[in-house]
Design a protein around this nucleic acid. Structure first.
Lengths: 333, 333
DNA sequence: TTGAAAGCGCTAACAA
DNA sequence: TTGTTAGCGCTTTCAA
């Protein structure tokens, strides 16, 4: 093994010296300003390679007054829901010449607030995905002047740019589907308590109750484990259909039901939400609601870009969803 | 909506003026240096709040000569395998007062190299998870002097700090288990071609062949979709057991088999690798190999910390794995 | 087309 | 205990 040399940083001045040019010229070459004589530019490039020079991001950011970075905060990196959004935003960002840095708040409103404070110092713009933090925190952030966009959360009376999903309609579609199959009593396995998405679903259920559907609610969460754990409670409700907060939960329920000898959909129907990949690979495949996450991500990326460019007139968007009927729902026997 | 004011940045000088102190004092308060008179410190803190001041990350990083950031690169954010590692590293980092920024190369060696170049300018240290880039690129990076650590990849003859998983033993355990069940011919659904983990598995299989196990190989990948797609090919091999590259692939195979009416494990046995949550929720639950990802993550975080602190004497570690026998494997009929 | 030099906002000697 | 000031490495006028 070669002796490790923690070399002192190579700076733009070193390159300038090596190339026999000024730092200004090196900077020009670096930034693709084409008012540099080809021969000189070549010497500079050679020096850069020779010395293995990399511009310091901190110095560039400071001098430029911006970081070329957009910060994305998600409550759970493991959830493909956010993953797809990150991917799409990354593509949009890349096209705009900026990079994306991602942080995971682990569903904790406190951590979320903290990470956001951090992110705000590093990034030119912020994308808060399904933020769980209290309204007041969000308000404070919004008042700070940093360009930002929020997904899956609407806060009445706050000048907050947002792109949301039509969860309300999704649940209505699900309920309508179940009602047509003859279900009169369904149990809803609730999502994370601070999730706006959960509130929207609850709103939709009370709408469905107006149509004569009986809805009982069981606290749960957003993971397979939680679905697995709460499945018996769902059963006890005496409902003929279980509406899980999302596909993960539904998959957990499905597994537990299998263990308990409960047949889906013969004994009880089951639905998910989000349409993750696994939804169509389960046995039976899951009736769920498809959310166009890539579209959501692209919209978010585009809107955030415009906001960062100073455009304050961003229309709040609500992306539509689509019911996917599969084998996990059936008519009441 | 209130008129949006893209306020000019509040700087440390503004705070100093407001508080009637010097910038040095403000800096001291900011950094918790306790040689500031309580009353003065209080005034400074009040000014900070009043003005809504946030230190510029770029300026701090530049002045300090470090960023307090560690960069993590993963080939696929969606894979819980990496997710768990990120979580553990984040915890270690947080305890050390630094933050983690994550980037996803999307399994593309080119993008990977590019992102690493970027990361290296932002971070004090690098954690490359299962890098797919060619040996030469890795060598160039290693020679650059940035503290870095690689997981799941060993490169002979390169002074590269690494922490790897004992994939070899994992596959051997799996093969031994299958052999004891009477299997004589297994088919291996290969992982991503640039993955070191795949190479290790192949090595292990040739070891198993020495014990009389017949192994045929089918190119596949690392996702459920790919498993689903290659399942028929696996069947055609005439093997009595399918060893999937990982649990995702196995789950895809399982779904396809169910559609095709192939019974697991009666008609054919099936194994995964990694032990993701879903592995025990499938029907039948998956025989797989558990990888202690949290431990891997903590080890990585700790080791990287030491490397960044200048300790060059880091022992390469190989974390052990554990066979988990479940319902998806059975004896040959 | 090139270079000199003034910042960018902060930290950390060094003085007082 | 506090303040002054010289950098940190880069970009970007402004002159030449």
């Amino acid at each position: 093994m070669v002796a490790p040399k923690r070399a002192k940083r190579v700076t733009i001045a070193d390159v300038a010296r090596e190339a026999g040019a000024s730092v200004a010229t090196v900077s020009r070459v670096l930034n693709g300003v084409d008012t540099v004589a080809p021969r000189l530019a070549e010497r500079v490039r050679a020096a850069i390679v020779d010395l293995g020079y990399r511009p310091s991001a901190a110095a560039q950011d400071l001098a430029r007054g911006r970081s070329g970075t957009i910060g994305v905060l998600v409550p759970d990196l493991a959830n493909p829901y956010f993953h797809d959004i990150i991917k799409s935003v990354s593509v949009v960002a890349r096209d705009a010449g900026s990079r994306v840095i991602v942080m995971d708040s682990d569903e904790d409103p406190g951590v979320e607030r903290e990470l956001t404070e951090d992110l705000i110092r590093y990034a030119d713009g912020l994308l808060l995905c399904s933020p769980r933090m209290p309204r007041a925190d969000l308000a404070a952030l919004a008042g700070r002047g940093t360009p930002m966009l929020v997904t899956n959360r609407q806060v009445a009376g706050l000048a907050l740019h947002s792109i949301t999903v039509d969860f309300f309609r999704g649940i209505m579609a699900l309920c309508g589907h179940l009602a047509r199959l003859g279900h009169r009593r369904v149990v809803y396995l609730e999502g994370p308590e601070h999730a706006w998405a959960n509130g929207e679903r609850l709103r939709a259920f009370s709408g469905a109750e107006a149509f004569g559907l009986d809805v009982v609610t069981v606290p749960c969460g957003s993971t397979t484990d939680e679905g697995y754990a709460r499945a018996p409670a769902a059963l006890e409700s005496g409902a003929t259909a279980v509406v899980a907060y999302n596909d993960f939960v539904a998959l957990g329920v499905l597994a537990r039901f299998a263990e308990l000898g409960v047949k889906v959909p013969d004994d009880v129907s089951l639905t998910g939400f989000d349409e993750i990949d696994m939804a169509r690979f389960s046995a039976p495949p899951l009736t769920t609601v498809a959310v166009p996450r890539d579209r959501l991500g692209r919209l978010a990326g585009g809107a955030l870009g415009r906001i960062m460019a100073g455009d304050e007139d961003i229309e709040p968007e609500v992306v539509p969803v689509e019911l996917r009927v599969r084998g996990s729902t059936g008519s009441v026997s």
